[in-house]
Design a protein around this nucleic acid. Structure first.
Length: 597
RNA sequence: GGAGCCGUAGUUCAGUUUGGUUAGAACGCCUGACUGUCACUCAGGAGGUCGCGAGUUCGAGUCUCGUCGGUUCCGCCA
């Protein structure tokens, strides 16, 4: 079973090696058989080197005829200059004149061709993941991921952070996402949960005096998947003592500056932009705005302008506490034409968000305004709108009427859609932005109770502490938290907060989200207990590692930066999991399976 | 839980609108030719449970219903 070991890899030989006898190991990437001359592209992680086989060398030639794509071989020979040079690859000036050829392993006919411009469906690529990962593009993603691991570890170490592993088997805390559960064999009927995040542990490490904690860790959430959401994902988890939000921002900005410089050689400007939650919701209709989108398209409130409107739809909307707002699209300098069909399409689009519909006001070439509702609008109203939007010839204003939240949501989505439809996004731009001052609580209309917007350990802003004692919904909803998200190009890539470290505040928050003292004690008693014995002021943040890598790689889906991802139904096609287990295993755990009706 | 799209040769797709002869193409595979290719070229060949199951029909890849899988989005994701 011996084989001739490589002396070099497939990406490193060049003209300076001419004359050397070398051995290469790798996969047959492509064969070009010219009859009297036989070429093999040999591939490994490092690159591709061309092997040349001359029919005069009968043994070698006969062996080569048995080769198929993706066979693993060992080839030995002299490095020679090519007669015709390939400028597309680093090794393109040389080739190996093969004297010895060993087939280390044959390959069956492949389920799909391993080629850079992959044509196989994602389903096949997932099933034969090892073949997909042989593609340069996929290998590259894993290598970038690897480089970022290193940068992160190095960066935090330089800043005095300690990496601590936290348990994978932990206590279930049903607030927030659904837990993945692990049954206990020793304690029938009891379960561990996989961490949604190591939140409680990292806070306790602060109580323990570790001062600065970091971990690149796996988190698990049993919720439905998306292109940017996997059931298990990786997080850069950070917690710090004796700090304020500003310290965390500064340290995080330094990290991203370093990653972007080292990976992309891009200088991002710090400090990042900041908006409060209320600002972005009103301006962009979302808490994760894509600031690459220029062309105005920011939301402006028109409710006041129309407060005395004679137009029935506006009038009745305002009377029933409704909201009117719109966004302006500049068409002229972007060479956009807004047709009737597009407007119909956008009308349908906004309706999905639960608003009545879309009206538009269009300024034509000469500056004359057109709109289906023009005759209902007064000169004064038109003037106010023109001034507010600084309307120029060719501009179109899209207006939505309805309930405030839905109007903002629909315009936010419309903004993204317009940007996508008309290519208003610069793909080489990186717009980082901090979103601060999130509400502490969110009212759940269905269950008629308050929930934590972030998690129940998030600290209210000092100036809102007194509001924790109020009873009315409005006051409670107005409480803002020292809680922040980091948004990049419309993706939430990080989220964190300053934590509550005083037991009496924690008690009040638990009470508001409907946790009785008894329940709070059962679920989080260990944490509040820990806080009794000297808890430092602390806070932290966690970054979505997979999303960051995807953006660095220019990808929309995080699947391509995860070696073995799950499908949208949370299965792994390669190893066919989840799957049934032996009756014996179930018995050991004291579990009986109820048949699905 | 809901909605959209997709499922035809080993692979990627066409064919489904308007049901009708032997289901086509490219890549891959097999055979042969070829001494400078690099997506080699050329000639020939093999290869199909049209995802699965019912139904409508004289006749279903094509229409209907169900189901399974993939994917995108909504709900969900402290």
């Amino acid at each position: 079973m011996g084989f001739k070991k490589r002396t070099h890899n497939c990406g490193e030989l060049n003209i300076s090696a001419i004359g050397k006898i070398v051995t290469l190991n790798g996969w047959v990437s492509r064969i070009r058989d010219l009859g009297g001359l036989y070429f093999i592209d040999l591939r490994d992680r490092y690159g591709i080197t061309q092997l040349k086989i001359n029919p005069d060398k009968k043994d070698v030639y006969d062996t080569s005829l048995k080769l198929r794509n993706e066979c693993v071989i060992s080839a030995t020979g002299k490095v020679i200059k090519r007669e015709s040079i390939n400028r597309n690859i680093p090794t393109g000036e040389i080739e190996i004149d093969v004297d010895e050829l060993q087939i280390l392993n044959e390959a069956d006919v492949l389920p799909f061709n391993v080629e850079e411009d992959v044509k196989a469906s994602e389903e096949l690529r997932l099933k034969y993941r090892y073949l997909d990962l042989r593609r340069r593009a996929m290998t590259k993603n894993l290598l970038i991921r690897n480089d970022v691991y290193f940068i992160v570890h190095d960066y935090y170490r330089r800043h005095n952070f300690v990496e601590v592993e936290t348990p994978i088997l932990m206590k279930s805390t049903p607030e927030g996402a659904r837990d993945y559960l692990v049954p206990s064999r020793i304690h029938h009927g009891k379960f561990y949960a996989l961490p949604q995040s190591p939140q409680t542990y990292k806070q306790i490490l602060m109580v323990a005096g570790l001062d600065r904690y970091v971990q690149i860790c796996k988190c698990f959430r049993d919720e439905d998947l998306r292109a940017d959401r996997q059931p298990e994902f990786t997080q850069i988890d950070v917690e710090m003592s004796f700090v304020t939000q500003e310290d965390i921002f500064e340290l995080s900005e330094g990290l991203f500056k370093e990653i972007w410089k080292k990976i992309l050689n891009v200088d991002i400007k710090i400090p990042f932009n900041r908006f409060t939650y209320d600002e972005v919701i009103n301006k962009y209709g979302t808490d994760k705005p894509d600031l690459r989108i220029k062309n105005d398209l920011t939301i402006k409130n028109l409710t006041d302008i129309f407060k005395n409107s004679n137009f029935n739809i506006f009038k009745s909307a305002i009377e029933s506490n409704g909201f009117i707002a719109g966004i302006k699209l500049k068409t002229k300098e972007y060479k956009i034409e807004i047709t009737r069909k597009i407007i119909d399409n956008y009308t349908e689009f906004v309706k999905k968000s639960g608003v009545g519909g879309l009206v538009y006001i269009k300024s034509d070439e000469t500056g004359k305004l057109n709109s289906p509702i023009l005759k209902y609008l007064s000169e004064e109203e038109l003037k106010l709108i023109s001034d507010l939007y600084e309307v120029q010839n060719g501009d179109v204003i899209f207006i939505v009427i309805g309930e405030k939240n839905k109007v903002l949501l629909s315009l936010g989505l419309l903004r993204n859609k317009i940007a996508e439809d008309f290519n208003l996004i610069d793909e080489n731009d990186y717009e980082f932005v901090w979103i601060t001052d999130f509400p502490l609580f969110k009212f759940n209309e269905e269950e008629m109770k308050f929930e934590g917007e972030h998690h129940p350990f998030t600290s209210p802003k000092d100036e809102h502490l007194s509001l924790l004692d109020s009873q009315d919904r409005k006051s409670l909803e107005s409480i803002r938290a020292v809680c922040y998200d980091l948004v990049l190009n419309g993706n939430e890539i990080g989220s964190g907060s300053m934590r509550i470290y005083k037991p009496e505040i924690q008690r009040k928050v638990f009470k508001i989200i409907g946790l009785s003292e008894d329940e709070a004690e059962k679920k989080f008693g260990f944490l509040t207990e820990a806080f009794k014995y000297g808890a430092p002021p602390h806070g932290g943040i966690a970054f979505g590692f997979d999303r960051i890598i995807a953006i660095l790689c220019g990808l929309k889906s995080i699947k391509d930066v995860i070696a073995f991802p799950k499908t949208v139904s949370a299965t792994s096609l390669m190893d066919d999991c989840p799957n049934y287990v032996d009756e014996r295993q179930l018995k050991e755990l004291g579990i009986k399976i109820e048949k699905k009706k």
